[in-house]
Design a protein around this nucleic acid. Structure first.
Lengths: 231, 231
DNA sequence: CACCAGGCTAAATGTGCGCTTAGTCAGCTT
DNA sequence: AAGCTGACTAAGCGCACATTTAGCCTGGTG
Protein backbone atom coordinates (compact mmCIF):
# COMPACT_ATOMS: atom_id res chain seq x y z
CA UNK A 1 0.00 0.00 0.00
CA UNK A 2 1.07 3.50 -0.65
CA UNK A 3 1.51 4.12 3.02
CA UNK A 4 1.43 7.34 4.94
CA UNK A 5 -0.76 9.88 3.27
CA UNK A 6 2.14 12.28 3.28
CA UNK A 7 0.47 14.25 5.97
CA UNK A 8 -2.72 16.05 5.16
CA UNK A 9 -1.27 19.16 3.62
CA UNK A 10 -4.67 20.79 3.41
CA UNK A 11 -3.03 24.13 3.68
CA UNK A 12 -5.34 25.83 1.17
CA UNK A 13 -3.24 28.85 0.62
CA UNK A 14 -3.98 31.29 3.38
CA UNK A 15 -1.22 32.44 5.63
CA UNK A 16 1.99 30.99 4.34
CA UNK A 17 4.08 29.98 7.31
CA UNK A 18 6.91 32.45 7.12
CA UNK A 19 8.94 30.26 9.43
CA UNK A 20 11.00 28.99 6.53
CA UNK A 21 12.17 32.54 6.51
CA UNK A 22 12.11 33.77 2.93
CA UNK A 23 12.66 30.71 0.84
CA UNK A 24 11.05 32.41 -2.12
CA UNK A 25 13.60 35.20 -1.85
CA UNK A 26 16.35 32.83 -2.87
CA UNK A 27 15.38 32.16 -6.43
CA UNK A 28 16.81 33.70 -9.51
CA UNK A 29 15.21 36.98 -10.44
CA UNK A 30 14.61 36.03 -14.05
CA UNK A 31 12.21 33.33 -12.98
CA UNK A 32 8.54 34.25 -13.02
CA UNK A 33 6.45 34.15 -9.89
CA UNK A 34 4.84 30.81 -10.70
CA UNK A 35 8.19 29.14 -11.31
CA UNK A 36 9.50 30.50 -8.03
CA UNK A 37 6.46 29.20 -6.22
CA UNK A 38 7.02 25.79 -7.74
CA UNK A 39 10.61 25.82 -6.57
CA UNK A 40 9.51 26.73 -3.08
CA UNK A 41 6.92 23.98 -3.10
CA UNK A 42 9.55 21.58 -4.39
CA UNK A 43 11.80 22.43 -1.49
CA UNK A 44 9.10 21.63 1.00
CA UNK A 45 8.14 18.38 -0.68
CA UNK A 46 11.67 17.14 -1.22
CA UNK A 47 12.67 18.03 2.31
CA UNK A 48 9.67 16.27 3.79
CA UNK A 49 9.56 13.12 1.67
CA UNK A 50 12.64 12.96 -0.50
CA UNK A 51 12.91 13.38 -4.25
CA UNK A 52 11.79 9.93 -5.33
CA UNK A 53 8.85 9.89 -2.96
CA UNK A 54 7.38 13.18 -4.11
CA UNK A 55 5.28 13.31 -7.22
CA UNK A 56 4.84 16.12 -9.68
CA UNK A 57 1.30 16.33 -8.35
CA UNK A 58 2.60 16.96 -4.83
CA UNK A 59 4.65 19.87 -6.05
CA UNK A 60 2.08 21.47 -8.30
CA UNK A 61 -1.06 20.93 -6.25
CA UNK A 62 0.53 22.79 -3.35
CA UNK A 63 0.42 25.91 -5.48
CA UNK A 64 -2.98 25.14 -6.97
CA UNK A 65 -1.85 23.80 -10.32
CA UNK A 66 -2.14 20.50 -12.13
CA UNK A 67 0.87 18.26 -12.77
CA UNK A 68 1.27 19.26 -16.40
CA UNK A 69 1.85 22.87 -15.42
CA UNK A 70 5.26 21.94 -14.08
CA UNK A 71 6.47 21.29 -17.62
CA UNK A 72 5.62 24.79 -18.71
CA UNK A 73 8.37 26.03 -16.42
CA UNK A 74 10.80 23.13 -16.07
CA UNK A 75 12.03 20.44 -18.36
CA UNK A 76 11.60 17.68 -15.78
CA UNK A 77 11.21 16.98 -12.10
CA UNK A 78 14.93 16.45 -11.88
CA UNK A 79 15.51 19.93 -13.27
CA UNK A 80 13.43 21.33 -10.42
CA UNK A 81 15.67 19.53 -7.97
CA UNK A 82 18.77 20.72 -9.72
CA UNK A 83 17.71 24.34 -9.71
CA UNK A 84 16.94 24.10 -6.01
CA UNK A 85 20.25 22.49 -5.12
CA UNK A 86 22.23 24.71 -7.43
CA UNK A 87 20.69 27.86 -6.03
CA UNK A 88 21.17 26.69 -2.48
CA UNK A 89 24.85 26.06 -3.03
CA UNK A 90 25.35 29.30 -4.88
CA UNK A 91 23.73 31.33 -2.12
CA UNK A 92 25.71 29.66 0.60
CA UNK A 93 28.89 30.34 -1.33
CA UNK A 94 27.91 33.98 -1.73
CA UNK A 95 27.54 34.25 2.00
CA UNK A 96 31.01 32.83 2.41
CA UNK A 97 32.54 35.21 -0.11
CA UNK A 98 30.76 38.27 1.18
CA UNK A 99 32.99 38.58 4.18
CA UNK A 100 35.67 41.15 4.45
CA UNK A 101 39.12 39.58 4.57
CA UNK A 102 39.83 40.43 8.21
CA UNK A 103 43.49 40.88 8.98
CA UNK A 104 43.41 38.43 11.86
CA UNK A 105 43.33 34.74 10.93
CA UNK A 106 41.28 33.80 13.96
CA UNK A 107 38.73 36.48 13.30
CA UNK A 108 38.59 35.47 9.69
CA UNK A 109 37.86 31.84 10.51
CA UNK A 110 35.40 32.83 13.17
CA UNK A 111 33.54 35.02 10.73
CA UNK A 112 33.45 32.30 8.10
CA UNK A 113 32.02 29.70 10.45
CA UNK A 114 29.58 32.15 11.91
CA UNK A 115 28.16 33.03 8.51
CA UNK A 116 28.23 29.50 7.16
CA UNK A 117 26.44 28.05 10.15
CA UNK A 118 23.93 30.87 10.43
CA UNK A 119 23.04 30.55 6.76
CA UNK A 120 22.52 26.82 7.06
CA UNK A 121 20.39 27.19 10.16
CA UNK A 122 18.39 29.97 8.60
CA UNK A 123 17.77 28.01 5.41
CA UNK A 124 17.80 24.59 6.95
CA UNK A 125 14.95 23.31 4.81
CA UNK A 126 16.63 24.21 1.54
CA UNK A 127 19.94 23.10 2.93
CA UNK A 128 18.51 19.74 3.87
CA UNK A 129 17.54 19.15 0.26
CA UNK A 130 21.03 20.26 -0.76
CA UNK A 131 22.57 17.63 1.50
CA UNK A 132 20.19 14.71 1.30
CA UNK A 133 19.05 14.66 -2.31
CA UNK A 134 22.37 15.02 -4.06
CA UNK A 135 22.29 11.42 -5.21
CA UNK A 136 19.03 11.95 -7.05
CA UNK A 137 20.71 14.33 -9.46
CA UNK A 138 21.76 13.23 -12.91
CA UNK A 139 25.50 12.60 -13.14
CA UNK A 140 26.29 15.83 -15.03
CA UNK A 141 24.25 17.87 -12.60
CA UNK A 142 25.84 16.10 -9.68
CA UNK A 143 29.27 16.93 -11.00
CA UNK A 144 28.35 20.57 -11.34
CA UNK A 145 27.34 20.70 -7.70
CA UNK A 146 30.47 18.93 -6.59
CA UNK A 147 32.45 21.74 -8.15
CA UNK A 148 30.60 24.30 -6.03
CA UNK A 149 31.22 22.22 -2.95
CA UNK A 150 34.91 22.10 -3.61
CA UNK A 151 34.83 25.90 -3.50
CA UNK A 152 33.39 26.11 -0.02
CA UNK A 153 35.71 23.45 1.26
CA UNK A 154 38.63 25.34 -0.22
CA UNK A 155 37.56 28.52 1.53
CA UNK A 156 37.73 26.88 4.92
CA UNK A 157 40.85 25.04 4.03
CA UNK A 158 42.62 28.25 3.10
CA UNK A 159 41.48 29.98 6.24
CA UNK A 160 42.96 27.25 8.40
CA UNK A 161 46.16 27.02 6.41
CA UNK A 162 46.61 30.74 6.78
CA UNK A 163 46.21 30.61 10.54
CA UNK A 164 48.71 27.81 10.79
CA UNK A 165 51.18 29.67 8.60
CA UNK A 166 50.82 32.79 10.70
CA UNK A 167 51.25 30.70 13.86
CA UNK A 168 47.91 31.90 15.15
CA UNK A 169 46.78 28.30 15.05
CA UNK A 170 48.49 25.16 16.20
CA UNK A 171 50.05 22.86 13.69
CA UNK A 172 46.88 20.85 13.18
CA UNK A 173 45.96 18.30 10.56
CA UNK A 174 44.21 20.69 8.22
CA UNK A 175 42.13 18.20 6.30
CA UNK A 176 40.79 16.54 9.38
CA UNK A 177 40.01 19.78 11.11
CA UNK A 178 38.26 21.26 8.09
CA UNK A 179 36.15 18.17 7.74
CA UNK A 180 35.12 18.41 11.35
CA UNK A 181 34.10 22.04 10.91
CA UNK A 182 32.10 21.26 7.81
CA UNK A 183 30.45 18.39 9.61
CA UNK A 184 29.20 20.71 12.29
CA UNK A 185 27.88 23.13 9.70
CA UNK A 186 26.33 20.48 7.52
CA UNK A 187 24.81 18.16 10.05
CA UNK A 188 22.74 20.85 11.67
CA UNK A 189 20.37 20.76 8.73
CA UNK A 190 19.36 17.34 10.01
CA UNK A 191 18.18 18.48 13.41
CA UNK A 192 17.75 22.26 13.37
CA UNK A 193 14.27 23.61 13.96
CA UNK A 194 13.28 27.24 13.69
CA UNK A 195 11.33 26.96 16.92
CA UNK A 196 14.23 25.47 18.82
CA UNK A 197 16.22 27.21 21.52
CA UNK A 198 18.98 28.58 19.31
CA UNK A 199 18.72 31.34 16.75
CA UNK A 200 20.85 30.86 13.65
CA UNK A 201 23.19 33.55 14.85
CA UNK A 202 23.60 32.08 18.31
CA UNK A 203 24.41 28.73 16.81
CA UNK A 204 26.89 30.33 14.46
CA UNK A 205 28.58 32.02 17.37
CA UNK A 206 28.74 28.81 19.35
CA UNK A 207 30.10 26.74 16.50
CA UNK A 208 32.63 29.40 15.63
CA UNK A 209 33.92 29.07 19.14
CA UNK A 210 34.11 25.29 18.83
CA UNK A 211 35.93 25.64 15.54
CA UNK A 212 38.52 27.93 17.03
CA UNK A 213 38.93 25.45 19.82
CA UNK A 214 39.89 22.89 17.21
CA UNK A 215 42.75 24.94 15.87
CA UNK A 216 44.11 26.55 18.98
CA UNK A 217 46.55 24.31 20.65
CA UNK A 218 44.84 23.32 23.81
CA UNK A 219 44.99 19.86 25.23
CA UNK A 220 47.44 17.33 24.03
CA UNK A 221 47.95 18.87 20.67
CA UNK A 222 51.37 17.46 20.19
CA UNK A 223 50.06 14.00 20.41
CA UNK A 224 48.00 14.13 17.26
CA UNK A 225 48.92 17.20 15.40
CA UNK A 226 51.11 15.85 12.74
CA UNK A 227 54.39 17.29 13.64
CA UNK A 228 55.73 14.51 11.54
CA UNK A 229 53.14 13.41 9.04
CA UNK A 230 52.55 9.76 8.74
CA UNK A 231 54.58 8.26 5.94
CA UNK B 1 37.98 14.62 -5.45
CA UNK B 2 39.38 13.04 -2.38
CA UNK B 3 42.77 12.21 -3.68
CA UNK B 4 45.05 13.29 -0.89
CA UNK B 5 48.03 11.15 -0.27
CA UNK B 6 46.85 7.67 0.38
CA UNK B 7 47.89 6.90 3.87
CA UNK B 8 49.90 3.85 4.70
CA UNK B 9 46.94 1.88 5.80
CA UNK B 10 47.91 -1.69 6.13
CA UNK B 11 44.47 -3.06 5.68
CA UNK B 12 44.26 -6.77 5.23
CA UNK B 13 46.02 -7.42 2.00
CA UNK B 14 44.01 -7.17 -1.18
CA UNK B 15 41.86 -4.37 -2.42
CA UNK B 16 38.14 -4.66 -2.29
CA UNK B 17 36.27 -7.58 -0.94
CA UNK B 18 36.60 -7.16 2.77
CA UNK B 19 36.50 -3.38 2.57
CA UNK B 20 32.91 -3.24 3.79
CA UNK B 21 34.48 -5.04 6.66
CA UNK B 22 32.10 -7.72 7.77
CA UNK B 23 28.69 -6.38 6.92
CA UNK B 24 27.32 -9.88 6.86
CA UNK B 25 28.56 -10.40 10.39
CA UNK B 26 26.09 -7.86 11.68
CA UNK B 27 22.87 -9.69 11.07
CA UNK B 28 20.83 -11.59 13.53
CA UNK B 29 21.98 -15.15 13.99
CA UNK B 30 18.53 -16.65 13.56
CA UNK B 31 18.41 -15.44 9.99
CA UNK B 32 19.40 -17.94 7.33
CA UNK B 33 22.30 -17.34 5.01
CA UNK B 34 20.15 -16.24 2.09
CA UNK B 35 18.29 -13.70 4.18
CA UNK B 36 21.56 -12.32 5.48
CA UNK B 37 22.88 -12.03 1.94
CA UNK B 38 19.76 -10.16 0.94
CA UNK B 39 20.23 -7.76 3.83
CA UNK B 40 23.81 -7.18 2.81
CA UNK B 41 22.77 -6.58 -0.77
CA UNK B 42 20.06 -4.23 0.45
CA UNK B 43 22.62 -2.23 2.37
CA UNK B 44 24.72 -1.75 -0.72
CA UNK B 45 21.77 -0.83 -2.93
CA UNK B 46 20.15 1.54 -0.45
CA UNK B 47 23.45 3.21 0.30
CA UNK B 48 24.25 3.67 -3.37
CA UNK B 49 20.86 4.74 -4.71
CA UNK B 50 18.48 5.30 -1.83
CA UNK B 51 15.50 3.23 -0.83
CA UNK B 52 12.98 4.53 -3.34
CA UNK B 53 15.39 4.27 -6.24
CA UNK B 54 16.32 0.65 -5.63
CA UNK B 55 14.07 -2.09 -6.87
CA UNK B 56 13.48 -5.52 -5.46
CA UNK B 57 15.22 -6.78 -8.56
CA UNK B 58 18.33 -4.75 -7.70
CA UNK B 59 18.50 -6.37 -4.31
CA UNK B 60 17.80 -9.92 -5.34
CA UNK B 61 19.72 -10.09 -8.59
CA UNK B 62 22.89 -9.09 -6.75
CA UNK B 63 22.72 -12.43 -4.96
CA UNK B 64 21.57 -14.36 -8.00
CA UNK B 65 17.87 -14.57 -7.19
CA UNK B 66 14.70 -13.35 -8.83
CA UNK B 67 12.57 -10.59 -7.30
CA UNK B 68 9.96 -12.89 -5.89
CA UNK B 69 12.53 -14.62 -3.72
CA UNK B 70 12.68 -11.58 -1.52
CA UNK B 71 9.19 -12.28 -0.24
CA UNK B 72 10.16 -15.71 0.96
CA UNK B 73 12.33 -14.03 3.57
CA UNK B 74 10.78 -10.60 4.14
CA UNK B 75 7.28 -9.26 4.20
CA UNK B 76 8.11 -6.26 2.03
CA UNK B 77 10.92 -4.11 0.75
CA UNK B 78 10.29 -1.75 3.63
CA UNK B 79 10.82 -4.60 6.08
CA UNK B 80 14.25 -5.16 4.57
CA UNK B 81 15.07 -1.53 5.18
CA UNK B 82 13.74 -1.69 8.70
CA UNK B 83 15.76 -4.74 9.60
CA UNK B 84 18.89 -3.07 8.27
CA UNK B 85 18.32 0.16 10.13
CA UNK B 86 17.21 -1.55 13.29
CA UNK B 87 20.23 -3.83 13.34
CA UNK B 88 22.57 -0.95 12.62
CA UNK B 89 21.24 1.04 15.51
CA UNK B 90 21.25 -1.91 17.84
CA UNK B 91 24.84 -2.74 17.08
CA UNK B 92 26.03 0.80 17.51
CA UNK B 93 24.25 0.93 20.85
CA UNK B 94 25.90 -2.31 21.90
CA UNK B 95 29.26 -0.80 21.17
CA UNK B 96 28.38 2.14 23.35
CA UNK B 97 27.22 -0.02 26.22
CA UNK B 98 30.13 -2.41 26.03
CA UNK B 99 32.52 0.01 27.65
CA UNK B 100 33.65 -0.33 31.18
CA UNK B 101 32.46 2.55 33.33
CA UNK B 102 35.88 4.17 33.79
CA UNK B 103 36.21 6.12 36.99
CA UNK B 104 37.41 9.24 35.26
CA UNK B 105 34.76 11.32 33.47
CA UNK B 106 37.17 12.47 30.79
CA UNK B 107 38.33 8.97 30.05
CA UNK B 108 34.77 7.79 29.99
CA UNK B 109 33.74 10.37 27.43
CA UNK B 110 36.85 9.78 25.41
CA UNK B 111 36.17 6.09 25.30
CA UNK B 112 32.56 6.60 24.27
CA UNK B 113 33.44 8.90 21.38
CA UNK B 114 36.28 6.70 20.32
CA UNK B 115 34.07 3.63 20.08
CA UNK B 116 31.12 5.46 18.56
CA UNK B 117 33.19 7.09 15.85
CA UNK B 118 35.22 4.01 15.09
CA UNK B 119 32.08 1.95 14.72
CA UNK B 120 30.51 4.44 12.35
CA UNK B 121 33.65 4.67 10.27
CA UNK B 122 34.03 0.93 10.20
CA UNK B 123 30.42 0.39 9.18
CA UNK B 124 29.98 3.57 7.24
CA UNK B 125 27.93 1.94 4.50
CA UNK B 126 25.37 0.50 6.87
CA UNK B 127 25.51 3.65 8.93
CA UNK B 128 24.79 5.76 5.87
CA UNK B 129 21.59 3.85 5.32
CA UNK B 130 20.76 4.32 8.99
CA UNK B 131 21.12 8.08 8.65
CA UNK B 132 19.82 8.80 5.18
CA UNK B 133 16.90 6.45 4.74
CA UNK B 134 15.11 6.98 8.01
CA UNK B 135 12.32 8.88 6.32
CA UNK B 136 11.52 5.91 4.09
CA UNK B 137 10.43 3.89 7.10
CA UNK B 138 6.78 3.45 7.95
CA UNK B 139 5.72 5.67 10.86
CA UNK B 140 5.65 2.85 13.43
CA UNK B 141 9.05 1.62 12.36
CA UNK B 142 10.40 5.14 12.37
CA UNK B 143 9.18 5.63 15.90
CA UNK B 144 10.87 2.45 17.00
CA UNK B 145 14.19 3.68 15.65
CA UNK B 146 13.78 7.06 17.27
CA UNK B 147 13.58 5.31 20.59
CA UNK B 148 16.94 3.65 19.97
CA UNK B 149 18.42 6.98 18.98
CA UNK B 150 17.27 8.58 22.16
CA UNK B 151 19.27 5.94 24.00
CA UNK B 152 22.56 6.81 22.35
CA UNK B 153 21.95 10.50 22.79
CA UNK B 154 21.23 9.91 26.44
CA UNK B 155 24.47 8.01 26.87
CA UNK B 156 26.51 10.97 25.67
CA UNK B 157 24.36 13.38 27.54
CA UNK B 158 24.92 11.55 30.81
CA UNK B 159 28.64 11.34 30.22
CA UNK B 160 28.88 15.10 29.77
CA UNK B 161 26.61 15.86 32.70
CA UNK B 162 28.75 13.67 34.88
CA UNK B 163 31.92 15.46 33.90
CA UNK B 164 30.36 18.81 34.60
CA UNK B 165 29.08 17.63 37.96
CA UNK B 166 32.50 16.34 38.89
CA UNK B 167 34.05 19.61 37.74
CA UNK B 168 36.25 17.74 35.30
CA UNK B 169 34.49 19.64 32.54
CA UNK B 170 33.66 23.28 32.26
CA UNK B 171 30.12 24.43 32.78
CA UNK B 172 29.14 23.97 29.15
CA UNK B 173 25.76 23.97 27.49
CA UNK B 174 25.23 20.23 27.55
CA UNK B 175 22.63 19.96 24.83
CA UNK B 176 24.60 22.01 22.38
CA UNK B 177 27.82 20.20 23.07
CA UNK B 178 26.26 16.76 22.80
CA UNK B 179 24.71 17.70 19.51
CA UNK B 180 28.05 18.82 18.19
CA UNK B 181 29.67 15.55 19.23
CA UNK B 182 26.91 13.52 17.61
CA UNK B 183 27.24 15.63 14.49
CA UNK B 184 30.88 14.70 14.16
CA UNK B 185 30.09 11.04 14.67
CA UNK B 186 27.13 11.02 12.34
CA UNK B 187 28.33 13.16 9.48
CA UNK B 188 31.37 11.05 8.84
CA UNK B 189 29.17 8.43 7.22
CA UNK B 190 28.67 10.97 4.44
CA UNK B 191 32.32 11.29 3.50
CA UNK B 192 34.26 8.41 5.04
CA UNK B 193 35.94 5.99 2.66
CA UNK B 194 37.70 2.82 3.67
CA UNK B 195 40.58 3.67 1.38
CA UNK B 196 41.04 7.14 2.82
CA UNK B 197 43.93 8.25 4.99
CA UNK B 198 42.33 7.56 8.37
CA UNK B 199 41.58 4.21 9.91
CA UNK B 200 38.38 4.07 11.97
CA UNK B 201 40.44 3.96 15.13
CA UNK B 202 42.57 6.95 14.19
CA UNK B 203 39.48 8.95 13.45
CA UNK B 204 37.92 7.90 16.72
CA UNK B 205 41.00 9.02 18.56
CA UNK B 206 41.04 12.36 16.78
CA UNK B 207 37.36 13.06 17.33
CA UNK B 208 37.59 12.02 20.96
CA UNK B 209 40.23 14.67 21.37
CA UNK B 210 38.03 17.26 19.67
CA UNK B 211 35.13 16.28 21.89
CA UNK B 212 37.19 16.72 25.02
CA UNK B 213 38.23 20.09 23.70
CA UNK B 214 34.57 21.06 23.59
CA UNK B 215 34.00 20.38 27.26
CA UNK B 216 37.27 21.69 28.55
CA UNK B 217 36.09 25.24 28.91
CA UNK B 218 36.31 28.00 26.39
CA UNK B 219 39.64 28.76 24.91
CA UNK B 220 40.35 31.92 26.82
CA UNK B 221 39.70 30.25 30.14
CA UNK B 222 41.83 27.21 29.90
CA UNK B 223 44.45 27.90 27.37
CA UNK B 224 47.38 26.88 29.45
CA UNK B 225 45.97 24.17 31.64
CA UNK B 226 47.00 21.36 29.42
CA UNK B 227 48.25 18.78 31.80
CA UNK B 228 45.45 17.28 33.71
CA UNK B 229 44.43 18.64 37.07
CA UNK B 230 41.45 20.87 37.32
CA UNK B 231 41.85 23.97 39.41
C1' DC C 1 -13.48 42.00 -33.89
C1' DA C 2 -10.14 38.52 -35.55
C1' DC C 3 -6.00 36.75 -34.38
C1' DC C 4 -2.37 35.01 -31.74
C1' DA C 5 0.59 33.40 -27.84
C1' DG C 6 1.26 31.26 -23.96
C1' DG C 7 -0.19 29.43 -19.37
C1' DC C 8 -2.82 25.98 -18.07
C1' DT C 9 -5.88 21.58 -17.83
C1' DA C 10 -7.68 16.95 -18.56
C1' DA C 11 -6.76 13.01 -20.58
C1' DA C 12 -3.85 9.76 -22.51
C1' DT C 13 0.54 7.14 -22.96
C1' DG C 14 3.78 4.14 -21.69
C1' DT C 15 6.65 2.30 -18.50
C1' DG C 16 8.25 0.24 -14.39
C1' DC C 17 7.49 -1.33 -10.04
C1' DG C 18 5.91 -3.93 -5.64
C1' DC C 19 3.86 -7.76 -4.69
C1' DT C 20 1.02 -12.17 -5.72
C1' DT C 21 0.15 -16.51 -7.83
C1' DA C 22 0.80 -20.96 -9.62
C1' DG C 23 3.84 -24.08 -10.44
C1' DT C 24 8.71 -26.42 -10.50
C1' DC C 25 12.28 -28.78 -8.26
C1' DA C 26 15.56 -30.60 -4.80
C1' DG C 27 15.99 -32.78 -0.72
C1' DC C 28 14.16 -35.06 3.16
C1' DT C 29 11.16 -38.43 5.61
C1' DT C 30 8.87 -42.77 6.00
C1' DA D 1 9.25 -45.10 -3.89
C1' DA D 2 5.83 -41.97 -2.77
C1' DG D 3 4.79 -37.95 -0.47
C1' DC D 4 5.79 -33.78 1.66
C1' DT D 5 8.11 -29.26 2.52
C1' DG D 6 9.84 -25.08 1.42
C1' DA D 7 12.88 -22.24 -1.44
C1' DC D 8 12.61 -20.46 -5.73
C1' DT D 9 11.03 -18.83 -10.55
C1' DA D 10 8.24 -17.01 -14.35
C1' DA D 11 4.47 -14.65 -15.33
C1' DG D 12 1.34 -11.43 -14.44
C1' DC D 13 -1.80 -8.03 -11.88
C1' DG D 14 -2.81 -3.59 -10.71
C1' DC D 15 -1.42 0.68 -10.18
C1' DA D 16 1.10 4.99 -9.77
C1' DC D 17 3.92 7.87 -11.84
C1' DA D 18 6.58 11.16 -15.22
C1' DT D 19 5.86 13.05 -19.25
C1' DT D 20 3.12 14.15 -23.63
C1' DT D 21 -0.72 15.65 -26.26
C1' DA D 22 -4.56 18.25 -27.73
C1' DG D 23 -7.19 21.68 -26.75
C1' DC D 24 -9.25 25.65 -23.83
C1' DC D 25 -9.15 30.18 -22.09
C1' DT D 26 -7.41 34.77 -21.21
C1' DG D 27 -5.38 38.88 -22.37
C1' DG D 28 -2.89 41.54 -25.47
C1' DT D 29 -2.47 43.50 -30.29
C1' DG D 30 -3.75 45.16 -35.03
Amino acid sequence: MDGMGAGARTDGDGAAPASDSDVSQLWDGDRGEVARNLLTSGVRCFAANGFHATTTRDITSAVGLSPGALYVHFRSKEHVLFEIIHTGHRRSLEVLDDGEPADDASEHLRSLIRRFVAWHAHHHVVARVCQYELTALSPPHYEEIRELRRCSTATFHDAVVRGVAERSFADVDVHRVVRAMLSLGVDLVRWYRSDGPDSPEQLGEFYAELALGMVTGTRSQRRFAASGDSP
